[in-house]
Design a protein around this nucleic acid. Structure first.
Length: 626
RNA sequence: GGUCUCGUAGCUCAACUGGAUAGAGCAGCUGCCUUCUAAGCAGCAGGUUCCAGGUUCGAGUCCUGGCGGGAUCACCA
């Protein structure tokens, strides 16, 4: 807000005049005045009282007097302790509202000429999208909208983890047990069908593993394990035999899969064939992936999220190696005796990181190097945002470091939009233990809940079934999005399925409802919204509303700077709350006189516009009626 | 164990990056629909900000040391 800058520069000048000391303008602190005190904005004067060598109260009064003298929009001031509270004239706020109401793009910046590539979603193609992806998609989409509002040119992209052992498991299980069923024959969404076989594989592997556990091999591995650190430790702790075995089986599962399992061997063989371009395997892979993509697309459509491009890991997993080898030539990396190539990232306070295996194959990191380069070649972006969970914080630090080592200028623009894991009331989300929440299932739930709540209120009896369904989707999915976006992305959050579909209190519905009320009044008013303000005073709540509207600008900027939609969520909720208060205190259509009525229509309309903008930045739709 | 991170009302989250008497929602209790949408509004109650020190005009926020969660330390992605 310009006003704060204006206050700062004037305050700095006054301090200089009064006390003959330069004070760094940017260090002046200006806050909104707390409700319990008189005033609109507050200057913290403690820092000046040292310079002035006077009590904070006296310093505040001196500065306050000068400010009132200098700036005609400041009508009053008071000093409490070291806080100088400044009151603005009604005229100032009314003019402010006049500007806001006329500026269609209020709060949004003009183009800043910078390009952003924002990656989000990042599903695996062997199973359906789950709750974790919903946080990712909701967050990524919203940050993209917020950056657009801040003047960036944003390109949204997806990364598909479409290769590797996991998809081979699904493929193998389908081959063995699927009897040729397809999404069509089974009337199932493609990603769910493929996911079904991923689960099936795990079940079969589990059975196989259980059988193996009584074999001589198993016993000898168990004895070995008891001599090693984990097993030895547990044994010394005096755990019971059955406990020990359980622990062993858990820790050995991976090794079993790689060394003893027949199914494991088959899956690995399939992966090898895939890597060697075996036509049959490749064809099956393509077929099953296309099922999955169809399924994903349905979910994306329903959530209203989109991508300019889908990067497939399979297209890049071999590349990156060249870039690494080039770096090796310039001695930015080093080769170990076994032939593997490594990066020394100690200067970045990271470890040694392997980039190419001794058999010449590349890794996750290597692959991401190639993807980053491909994106830069295409978009020449200034900023590259990766929406990925915080368990990969280390990976992205390493990616950035390696690219910086390679002197890639774009490396500095890499930003990991890291978000915390979602906890369920029952504990952590683990796909293997079946405690995941399926995305499609969850969406159905919230929409159904919206339907029930809406029908109970009985306000939309004249809606067609299409209109009604559209409304349920807006309400249900909006509720879900708001529930997630309302918390700071970096924080781990608890997801309570019950609460996520809650339609009372601090929710999207609350805001959508305020918006619908406004539209209802505007419909009844049935004229063009006035463009001129003909009143010169107002109620305290009206003043509060204008101040809140005015803050939209700074909020959008702060959200863009921090990549943090929760700021928008909180702002929008707060504005809706103020509007509801206003609604209950003031009559709009039945206002005491025509000028007041027009003013309130204009004010309500501006609130509606900002509420809609705010919700849209979160990816939430508004509705004219509900 | 090393590194990183978190700990705020019964529960879920805030606190403008060091500012005033730590705020909302849910759950609980009171009221308010013959007036523009009650999916709302007004109110009550609920706190040793994990503990102990320190830094300063001022600490939930910064520093040190504990305690307790979590992530990560793969030639998986």
């Amino acid at each position: 807000m310009e006003i704060e800058e204006l206050l700062k520069s004037n305050t700095a000048q006054i301090v200089k005049d009064l006390y003959e000391t330069d004070f760094d303008q940017s260090k002046i602190i200006i806050n909104e005045t707390r409700k319990e005190f008189e005033g609109d904005l507050t200057v913290v004067v403690f820092p000046f009282s040292k310079i002035a060598k006077k009590k904070p109260e006296d310093t505040g009064i001196e500065i306050g007097e000068k400010l009132v003298e200098k700036l005609d929009f400041i009508s009053s001031f008071n000093v409490v302790k070291g806080f100088l509270n400044l009151g603005f004239t009604d005229d100032y706020w009314l003019k402010r509202l006049a500007v806001i109401s006329q500026d269609k793009s209020f709060g949004f910046s003009n183009s800043n000429g910078k390009k952003v590539v924002l990656e989000y979603c990042g599903p695996n193609t062997n199973k359906p999208i789950h709750l974790g992806h919903i946080r990712n998609m909701t967050l990524g989409f919203s940050v993209a909208e917020i950056l657009k509002a801040n003047g960036y040119e944003v390109h949204k992209v997806n990364i598909l983890n479409d290769r590797g052992i996991a998809i081979c498991k699904s493929m193998l299980a389908w081959q063995k047990f699927g009897q040729g069923e397809t999404p069509e024959t089974n009337n199932t969404k493609g990603d769910h069908l493929v996911g079904k076989y991923y689960v099936k594989f795990d079940q079969e592997l589990g059975k196989e593993f259980e059988n193996w556990q009584n074999s001589a091999e198993a016993n000898s591995e168990y004895s070995k394990w008891l001599e090693e650190k984990d097993g030895k430790k547990s044994k010394e702790e005096g755990k019971e035999q059955s406990e020990l075995k359980k622990q062993f089986h858990k820790s050995f599962k991976n090794t079993y899969f790689n060394q003893y399992s027949a199914l494991g061997a088959e899956a690995s063989e399939m992966l090898l064939k895939w890597e060697n371009d075996d036509p049959e395997v490749r064809q099956l892979w393509k077929k099953m992936n296309s099922w999955v993509y169809d399924g994903f697309q349905q979910t994306f459509d329903r959530l209203g999220i989109d991508f300019e491009e889908h990067y497939k890991e399979s297209d890049f997993y071999k590349e990156g190696k060249n870039m690494v080898e080039a770096g090796l030539g310039e001695e930015k990396f080093y080769r170990k005796e076994d032939g593997s190539i490594w990066a020394d990232l100690e200067e970045y306070k990271l470890d040694q990181k392997i980039l190419v295996r001794n058999d010449g194959t590349s890794l996750y990191l290597t692959q991401d190097i190639a993807v980053a380069q491909a994106r830069y070649n295409k978009y020449k972006m200034d900023l590259s945002i990766y929406t990925v969970g915080d368990e990969q914080n280390y990976h992205f630090k390493a990616l950035k470091a390696v690219l910086q080592k390679l002197d890639k200028a774009y490396a500095d623009g890499i930003h990991h939009l890291s978000y915390g894991m979602i906890d369920l009331p029952s504990g952590k989300m683990k796909s293997r233990e079946g405690t995941v929440v399926d995305a499609d299932f969850l969406i159905d739930e919230v929409v159904e809940k919206a339907r029930l709540a809406t029908m109970e209120l009985g306000k939309i009896e004249d809606f067609s079934s299409e209109q009604a369904q559209e409304l349920f989707e807006k309400i249900g999915i909006g509720a879900l999005r708001f529930y997630i976006l309302n918390v700071n992305p970096q924080k781990r959050m608890l997801f309570d399925p019950e609460k996520s579909v809650e339609l009372n209190g601090a929710t999207a519905v609350f805001i959508q409802y305020a918006y619908a009320r406004i539209q209802s009044v505007l419909r009844k008013y049935n004229q063009d919204v006035p463009t001129e303000i003909k009143v010169n005073k107002m109620e305290p709540i009206e003043r509060e509303l204008i101040i809140a509207l005015s803050g939209f600008e700074t909020t959008v900027q702060a959200a863009g700077k921090d990549f943090d939609p929760s700021l928008i969520a909180q702002y929008t909720y707060n504005l809706a709350k103020l509007f509801n208060k206003f609604w209950n205190q003031c009559q709009i259509l039945n206002a005491e006189d025509e000028n007041v009525k027009e003013f309130r229509i204009l004010l309500s309309n501006s609130c509606g516009n900002i509420l809609e903008k705010g919700l849209n930045l979160l990816g939430i739709d508004t509705t004219e009626r509900m």
